[in-house]
Design a protein around this nucleic acid. Structure first.
Length: 115
DNA sequence: CAGTTGACACCGT
DNA sequence: AACGGTGCCAACT
């Protein structure tokens, strides 16, 4: 584990940095982050990073990251099933069921915003 | 060390 | 429209 701690720190660090840069009330997608990292199709890695983010001491707004449909696929990983929704609504993001309302409007693309 | 898994995305059928 | 297979790359077992 320590062998690759250096490498994963680098990759994870990027994902965490971007995720933490997401403004309140906005959301982004795994694909967008993956693309910003240089690998458009490695959205899985972003998911993995966020999965490990629960292991991080610092808070990462993982609830602001959704899949390309704007659907809260990762909500199941939160302590409560409504935790992710509550957090987003608390930030001003409207949620319909398990999907973000006006997803395109609240979508925050790092490739554009951080360009 | 090799195989399997994974909070996704995209294409083909 | 729904389903399955493939790509991607790192972590986990």
């Amino acid at each position: 584990m320590n062998q690759s701690s250096k490498a994963n720190e680098n990759f994870f660090e990027k994902v965490y940095s971007i995720t933490r840069l997401i403004p309140q009330g906005r959301v982004t997608t795994y694909g967008a982050i993956a693309r910003y990292l240089g690998s458009a199709r490695s959205a899985r890695m972003v998911g993995w990073a966020l999965n490990s983010c629960l292991n991080q001491t610092e808070w990462v707004p993982a609830h602001r990251v959704v899949n390309r449909n704007g659907r809260l696929t990762g909500k199941i990983h939160f302590p409560g099933m409504n935790t992710m929704r509550e957090l987003l609504e608390s930030e001003g993001v409207e949620i319909d069921g398990d999907a973000v309302v006006n997803f395109e409007k609240v979508f925050w693309d790092p490739n554009i915003e951080l360009r």
